[in-house]
């Protein structure tokens, strides 16, 4: 009798383990990157591995602060963020695991967290988009500071409330210091910099002839051109190593509170496969970060972009200060 009970219990346990093993191949992703860009990759991942992924899409900063609120009990297994500031926020709060070294080593160190808590998955260069019918490349300033001079009065667009602009201001604080950043923001405000809600609106405004130039990430223009090749915008890569030329990665990390760490790590590895990296290059026009995968042919090589030396997660430490400075300059 006793033996039968043990046998049944044992069988039940094995059955439970099996079914758990089969059904549990699932994970939850918080994606600060949009569904249009990410979902095809996730579908391919599920097809390849059998791991089903439930995704919550929202803004990167929103998701980072949500994860902070959720703390230990976050439903998320992976956070896929659009910029280093939001990833750094989660990393500095101690909510990310350190990633295995084979993941971290697969992309150049300058595109990941210094302590390996998140890894860069694709690169986004800060550039100035400009109206090629009105401005010649040699008329463009060599750094973003040039837009503070009076000749650009009213001609430049920025997205002061946008995450990528604030991350850029945070980088500028780390590179140039608070005082210089403040002066620059005040100069931009005094120079009647036009304020837009996001990068897309700036690119659209340049193409519409509302403004002549704007500070954005590089790939928005390429997407606009893909929808409407007649657009007049062109990208200008600043030749000097400042915040204005920084390549800021999107990236991903595994939450310490995750119950599905194996799946989470598999997912992050998937983002770094040749297939996914090629997808970033061809579909989202970002820079692939894994060496050997070619970027879009119209882009300058990533290594040719001058990059300031900076620990990207530190952006999170000055994000609030960046917002403060932007607000005090009257730009918010």
């Amino acid at each position: 009798m006793k033996r039968i009970v043990v046998l049944i219990a044992g069988l039940a346990m094995i059955a439970a383990a099996c079914s758990a093993g089969a059904a549990d191949r699932s994970m939850t992703l918080y994606s600060g990157r949009s569904e249009d860009l990410v979902q095809p990759l996730i579908d391919a991942f599920t097809k390849e591995t059998g791991i089903s992924v439930t995704v919550k899409y929202a803004g990167s900063t929103d998701l980072a602060t949500t994860i902070l609120e959720e703390g230990d009990a976050s439903p998320a297994d992976v956070f896929f963020g659009q910029d280093p500031a939001s990833l750094g926020t989660v990393a500095l709060s101690g909510l990310f695991d350190v990633l295995p070294s084979d993941i971290i080593d697969s992309v150049p160190a300058r595109f990941s967290d210094d302590e390996g808590r998140w890894v860069g998955t694709s690169g986004r260069a800060r550039v100035a988009v400009y109206d090629s019918t009105l401005v010649a490349p040699n008329e463009m300033p060599t750094t973003e500071d040039g837009f503070g001079s009076s000749e650009w009065n009213g001609r430049v667009g920025i997205a002061p409330s946008n995450g990528s602009f604030l991350a850029f201001v945070a980088a500028k604080i780390l590179i140039d210091g608070e005082a210089k950043t403040r002066t620059w923001l005040e100069a931009m405000a005094a120079n009647d910099a036009q304020k837009y809600p996001n990068n897309s609106a700036i690119v659209a405004a340049v193409n519409a002839g509302e403004i002549e130039a704007g500070l954005v990430n590089h790939y928005y223009l390429l997407r606009a051109l893909a929808e409407n090749p007649d657009d007049v915008g062109a990208n200008f890569f600043f030749p000097a190593p400042t915040a204005g030329s920084l390549v800021m990665p999107a990236g991903a990390g595994v939450l310490s509170s995750s119950d599905h760490k194996d799946e989470a790590i598999e997912f992050i590895k998937w983002l770094l496969t040749a297939e996914s990296q090629t997808y970033f290059a061809q579909e989202t026009f970002e820079y692939p970060l894994v060496p050997g995968i070619p970027a879009s042919a119209v882009l300058p090589a990533i290594d040719s972009i001058p990059t300031p030396d900076l620990n990207l997660s530190d952006l999170a430490t000055v994000l609030d200060l960046a917002t403060d400075l932007v607000a005090k300059a009257g730009l918010l």
Partner: peptide
């Protein structure tokens, strides 16, 4: 965006997200 269960999406969200990507 903030309160929906993971995996839940609406047309308003799709519109906004796609427009944000210039699609």
């Amino acid at each position: 965006l903030l309160l929906s269960p993971p995996g839940f999406s609406t047309l308003a969200v799709r519109t906004w997200a796609a427009a944000d990507e210039l699609l």
